[in-house]
């Protein structure tokens, strides 16, 4: 009895607060130094002034006044939203279908894991290389044009295949559909299969089961995928630049152009506005899902 009491008595351990903080201190340190401080720095610099050769500390609203006074800003933000919405719709459609196939039509776990990995592996390779690899497909003399020409479907090579909005969105879908597949698949795998049997027994058709059982239960995964895709597309600058041949613009390119001209205050002001917009969008989406519970 005394023995048992001694063993199960709470050991002299640190309280949950101290232990927790000790364990997360490296994480907190990294995020403070490389995320919080840099964002504060950007906010500060967004109020600074610029001369032709340098930037100087100040507290002025010139950068914002210029930003909001320029018609280009609104056009570029609108374009950014356009990319985000189109990419979101396409990745959701493809991602849901692929995840649904993996979760409900592939019957053995070994095959499920194998096919899931097959979808995941490209995500672990270089985005830039994956963008470059569209060139032989989409160029004027590329595979797509020569195929269409030889099939007689077109008379002259299509110009809009490469370096256009089409190729930008194609690349986005190519790069980011995975971010939809993974969370949706994860949520689908946690759906209790007896619910689907119950729907079948109650006389629901396949489509009805899909629409009234599976889709509602998959919503958290859809939300998480949406958050990933929307933020990745809205924050992108390299895909738009590369795949549009510098012909289209989004907010990220606006920022990177300013950076290239060493106009850091102006770049910072645009970055702050972008950050606010992204946080508002994500904040809204987060109201519909409890991420921690869904992992």
């Amino acid at each position: 009895m005394t023995d048992h009491a001694r063993i199960s008595a709470p050991r002299r351990s640190l309280g949950p607060n101290v232990a927790g903080w000790l364990l997360v201190s490296p994480l907190a340190l990294v995020l403070s130094a490389f995320l919080v401080l840099p964002v504060i720095m950007i906010v500060v610099v967004s109020f600074w002034g610029t001369t032709e050769f340098s930037i100087y500390p100040a507290f002025q609203f010139d950068n914002y006044a210029f930003l909001f006074g320029s018609e280009v800003t609104y056009r570029v933000f609108l374009n950014t939203f356009k990319y985000a919405v189109i990419t979101w719709a396409l990745t959701l459609g493809i991602g849901f279908t692929v995840a649904y196939f993996l979760a409900f039509h592939v019957r053995t776990q070994t095959w499920q894991i194998a096919l899931f990995l097959l979808c995941t592996i490209p995500f672990l390779t270089s985005n830039i290389i994956r963008m470059i690899s569209w060139i032989p497909f989409l160029g004027r003399e590329g595979i797509a044009n020569s195929a269409l020409l030889s099939w007689g479907m077109i008379d002259a090579p299509l110009d809009w295949l490469l370096f256009s909005d089409f190729s930008v969105i194609l690349a986005f879908v190519h790069l980011y559909t995975l971010f939809m597949v993974v969370p949706i698949f994860n949520t689908m795998m946690r759906i209790d299969r007896s619910l689907i049997e119950a729907a079948n027994d109650a006389g629901a058709s396949g489509w009805q089961t899909l629409a009234f059982v599976i889709v509602p239960l998959t919503k958290p995964g859809i939300m998480i995928g949406t958050i990933f895709v929307v933020t990745l597309v809205m924050g992108d600058f390299i895909t738009v630049r590369f795949m549009s041949g510098s012909q289209s613009a989004n907010v990220g390119r606006l920022i990177s152009n300013d950076i290239a001209l060493l106009q850091y205050p102006s770049a910072s002001a645009t970055a702050v506005v972008l950050l606010v917009v992204v946080l508002v969008v994500i904040g809204t989406l987060l109201r519909f899902v409890d991420i921690r519970r869904e992992l």
């Binding site: 995020l31 995320l35 840099p38 610099v45 933020t231 924050g235 950050l275």
Partner: peptide, 21 residues
């Protein structure tokens, strides 16, 4: 939520901010 923020904050902000800092 700071961790979630790290996921959603556009990468170019991290690059620009750390560079400036």
């Amino acid at each position: 939520y700071l961790m979630i923020a790290a996921l959603v904050i556009p990468s170019i902000l991290v690059s620009l901010g750390v560079g400036l800092l």
